[in-house]
Design a protein around this nucleic acid. Structure first.
Length: 920
RNA sequence: GCGGGAGUGGCGGAAUGGCAGACGCGCCAGCCUUAGGAGCUGGUGCCUUCGGGCGUGGGGGUUCAAGUCCCCCCUCCCGCACCA
């Protein structure tokens, strides 16, 4: 943006802003302005003005330093936390705010593969670039505390925490994790081999052979949370297949109840809590065993009260008992519809299995309405009614949930009803529907019928009695199941934390002892993963580290003399590093432990009114609702159980910022055209280069040709303007479109602030020491009261509106009184810190504005002398009256009636200070 | 299908049940100016016969008073998706 040569030399232009911004950024760095003092250790500083003050730990979600760099959407949350952090400093808090980098993971590796450079090189370059972009925005970070997950000093502790998890087990009787040594002690009477087997089966991090999500396109397995509903990888959108593979798992399911119940103690948005609750998916009910030909078919049900209505059973097609129970020939008089037209049960079952396996996830969901299945030829006995019930297989029963088998109760379950209709199975209602009920299955509340001993009981009582009966008779037991599965923790990639695990000759996983940490990621000739055809479900994962032979084969002395071991060649998933980073921020230079207990207790320990402890404000996007946020809570709880931290939740208050989105434009061929060059010729008619183009709304991205970068905004307007614009364009939690041309409004505001205090021609301050008039004082204190409230509630957009209003009253004055200028500068400083520092200095102060007290409103100036009441007649404003603020109700009433000329009102309502409503 | 969130000027958005549209963009008029992607001042919901009328997705309701509370419906976004 070019300025006229004759513009005044001290006008607040973009160039001018850029000059002072660079200067203040240097100042902050040199003075360590944003260093937050720790209670103990390297970062303790008793001379700091906030040493020992009440703390505030303000945290941004760990960014991934992408090769594409930042666009204007990325810093929205970062600026929000910075504004809040600066406000909290001025409100007297010791504020910890910093930023590190979640730098391991697939994208870095993929980018490195594409460019042929080492992931470390690209990652470090990206971090450098990211840091420069962040610095330019004037973020008040304590840069001493910044960490990257890829730092060896950092992942040394990630490995240490992994070993803590590996070396512990969950004791259900104590409902917490305990050191594995305590389990070993309990089992000391057993022979070593058996003891080891039991111990290894109980570890919170364990190896298991189990069906996992294998993604050939990425060459790695994925966690359930990383697979979308339609069976594709969240990253890259490649097909994902279920394969049974030997993999590392984390026993997060042991924590299901605590992860669920402790949500109630957190200050999080309800939708996020709900998403976690749904993901964990606790259901309470019972296991019931149905005898069948010498076997027992165990089902899970949430409605044990309806057992008398179980008229058939359904197993998942892959259920292990199907082959055992299935007879070679159909029983006599088998219903034609049940056989699927096949001559024998084995043929029918094989055909159905093939049919079900061929369906994609998408097809299966699309077909959810039409129930399919086939009779196995076998019968079980309903233990309550003693009736034989046919056993079907059907794909509406999922192998992965509950026991992979259900008792079908068509009377009280819509799916079972539909299936029963298709296969002409008997339907028995065991809960009496309300009179006039004409629909099919009835899932509501009502008395039990056709249910023997349960008849007449309500649903809850019937459930309890049914469970008692099951437990007494040995047919089952009350039970709770969860949707949550254990967390698949290994990845067949290069760019991740190596496991601190070796295998001995027997193949037993053994922890690398603490003193041998870190296990550094070795250099390899080829760090690219073995790639496969994206649809090659039968391909075998091959880890890049397995090719580093001299690293894999290692001789170690683990206490019983030097022996040969083989290293684990999987690496940890990207989520590992972000499970605990906020703790490392607290004590980043500590070499003795991952965080000193005193520093942990000070920054995130339990507080009055904040029982779980944790970060005071955590800001980030909603996309991590069930991934990072669930994993990090789990790790934190393990650390808590083992006594390493005093808080039992990592993030006390969570805030989801919205996204900045953008318009993109396509021409007739569907090709994107540069959004910057598109003009709106008429409302709704967009033109580029003389041709009409179509507008779409969504993400910002290179391929959409609509990226706007903070770099370019800083250059064209200055960082302060950019910050003010982003904070003023709407509430932080709401997504909204970017509009470059509107940024100028923020610049005009800062220019007016500048001009209210500084002469544009001389650069000298123009404030006067004469007191402000009463009206101006009132405007100031009204602003102070409002801004303070808005800041605390993260309502930055309305806070800025109030500052603009205050500034606009000042521009009408011949000169700005100092007693208004100073608080204005202080209140502006969280949003526009550079210009605020510059103005603060011009007002004669030597020190940074960072630790100046935020103004407090004088309550006496918030009350006006007179108040204007609108007078409504039958709900419409018909006039207004001005009366003394302390006028009593009858005075107001009389004045109001006189004003609107009503002599005989039916009713008059006076709302003190608000309005008068007359019913005529 | 279930659950959650949201619908307010041309646009982003303000409004403890109490004057709808704060603040900003854009637009209009004026000032300044060498012809402005600059600055300043003022205006700007819609309709109007200039009295006023109508307006917060639609329709009902509660109330002196509803964007806000209640009921029904529509649209969009997000999550889950045959979870037994």
């Amino acid at each position: 943006m070019t300025e006229q040569p004759d513009s005044p030399p001290f006008r607040y232009t973009a160039e001018f802003a850029n000059r002072i911004e660079a200067r203040w950024q240097d100042y902050w760095r040199e003075h360590g302005t944003f260093h937050a003092p720790n209670p103990v250790g390297d970062l303790a500083d008793p001379k700091h003005p906030r040493f020992g003050a009440p703390k505030q730990f303000v945290l941004d979600m760990f960014p991934y330093p992408s090769g594409a760099g930042l666009h204007v959407g990325h810093p929205l949350g970062f600026i929000g936390t910075d504004v809040f952090a600066r406000f909290q400093r001025m409100a007297g808090h010791n504020v910890l705010h910093t930023m590190g980098f979640d730098a391991f993971g697939l994208p870095a590796e993929q980018y490195a593969v594409q460019t042929g450079t080492h992931p470390r090189t690209t990652t470090e370059d990206n971090i450098v670039r990211y840091r420069a972009q962040l610095r330019m925005l004037g973020l008040g970070h304590d840069d001493r505390r910044s960490v990257a997950t890829t730092d060896v000093d950092y992942y040394r502790w990630t490995q240490w925490i992994f070993l803590q998890i590996f070396n512990s087990w969950y004791d259900p009787s104590k409902n917490r994790a305990r050191p594995i040594s305590e389990l070993e002690a309990q089992l000391s009477h057993l022979p070593a081999v058996e003891r080891n087997r039991i111990v290894d089966e109980h570890r919170l991090a364990y190896v298991s052979e189990a069906p996992v999500n294998w993604c050939p396109g990425l060459g790695t397995v994925l966690a359930n949370e990383e697979v979308t509903a339609d069976g594709r990888s969240e990253r890259g959108n490649f097909p994902v297949f279920k394969r049974s593979l030997r993999q590392w798992m984390m026993r997060i399911t042991a924590y299901s109840d605590r992860l669920l119940d402790d949500l109630d103690k957190l200050d999080w948005p309800e939708p996020i809590k709900l998403m976690q609750r749904n993901w964990i998916g606790r259901s309470t009910g019972a296991y019931i065993d149905f005898p069948a030909d010498g076997e027992k078919i165990r089902v899970f049900t949430t409605r044990p009260d309806t057992i008398y209505g179980a008229t058939y059973m359904v197993l998942a097609p892959e259920h292990e008992l199907v082959d055992k129970l299935m007879p070679g020939v159909w029983p006599l008089e088998t219903h034609e519809a049940w056989t699927g037209g096949h001559a024998t049960p084995p043929e029918a079952v094989a055909a159905y299995r093939a049919f079900a396996a061929a369906k994609s996830e998408v097809e299966r969901q699309a077909d959810a309405k039409a129930k399919t299945g086939v009779f196995t030829g076998a019968y079980a006995i309903n233990p309550a009614s003693d009736q034989p019930v046919p056993i079907f297989i059907a794909d509406y029963v999922l192998a992965g949930y509950g026991t992979g088998a259900i008792m079908a109760v068509p009377g009280q379950d819509e799916r079972d009803w539909e299936f029963a209709e298709v296969f002409e199975l008997p339907i028995v209602r065991t809960v009496e529907p309300p009179p006039g009920w004409e629909a099919k299955a009835f899932t509501g509340e009502g008395p039990a019928i056709n249910s023997g001993m349960l008849d007449g009981l309500g649903v809850a009582d019937a459930k309890a009695k049914a469970i008692d009966w099951l437990e007494d008779s040995g047919y089952g037991e009350g039970a709770v199941t969860y949707r949550l599965r254990d967390w698949l923790f290994s990845r067949q990639r290069y760019w991740g934390e190596p496991f601190p695990i070796v295998y001995d000759e027997e193949g037993r996983a053994i922890a690398v002892p603490d003193e041998m940490l870190p296990v550094a990621l070795p250099e390899v000739a080829d760090f690219s993963p073995k790639t496969f055809d994206v649809n090659d479900a039968n391909s075998e994962p091959e880890t890049p580290l397995s090719r580093a032979k001299e690293w894999v084969e290692v001789e170690l002395d683990l206490g019983d003399g030097p022996k040969r071991y083989r290293r684990e060649t999987n690496v940890m998933p990207q989520w590992a590093g972000s499970c605990w980073y906020q703790l490392r921020y607290l004590d980043p230079t500590n070499h003795e432990s991952f965080v000193d207990p005193a520093n942990e207790a000070y920054w995130v320990g339990p507080q009055p009114g904040q029982e779980p402890g944790g970060v005071d404000l955590y800001v980030g996007g909603v996309e991590h609702a069930v991934l990072h946020l669930l994993y990090a809570r789990f790790w934190h709880k393990v650390l808590y159980d083992l006594g390493h931290v005093s808080s039992f939740e990592p993030y006390y208050r969570l805030f989801n910022q919205g996204y900045i989105q953008a318009y993109a434009y396509t021409d007739d061929r569907g090709a994107y055209v540069p959004a910057e060059e598109v003009t709106e010729e008429q409302p709704g008619i967009y033109v580029w280069n003389g041709q009409k183009v179509n507008r779409e709304y969504g993400k910002m991205g290179k391929s959409l040709k609509n990226v706007v970068t903070p770099d370019e905004m800083c250059e064209r307007y200055g960082a302060d303007t950019f910050r003010v614009y982003e904070m003023s364009m709407g509430p932080l939690e709401v997504s909204r479109p970017w509009e470059t041309r509107a940024v100028v409004g923020a610049q005009r505001f800062l220019q007016r602030v500048w001009r209210a205090i500084v002469d544009e021609n001389t650069g000298k301050t123009t404030v006067v020491d004469t007191p402000a008039d009463l009206e101006t004082k009132r405007a100031l204190h009204k602003a102070i009261a409002g801004v303070r409230e808005d800041m605390a509630a993260l309502r930055f957009n309305t806070a800025i509106a109030k500052l603009i209003e205050l500034t606009n009253t000042l521009t009408k004055l011949p000169a700005t009184p100092r007693e208004v200028a100073e608080p204005l500068v202080v209140m502006v400083s969280p949003f526009a810190p550079h210009i605020a520092e510059e103005l603060w200095q011009k007002l004669g102060h030597d020190e940074t504005v960072t630790y100046v007290d935020f103004p407090v409103a004088d309550a006496s100036l918030l009350v006006e002398e007179t108040v204007t009441y609108p007078v409504q007649v039958n709900g419409k404003v018909r006039g207004r009256i001005e009366v003394a603020v302390d006028a009593d109700e009858s005075t107001v009433r009389a004045a109001a009636l006189a004003e609107v000329g009503v002599t005989d009102p039916k009713k008059v309502i006076v709302i003190p200070g608000r309005l008068v409503s007359v019913v005529a």
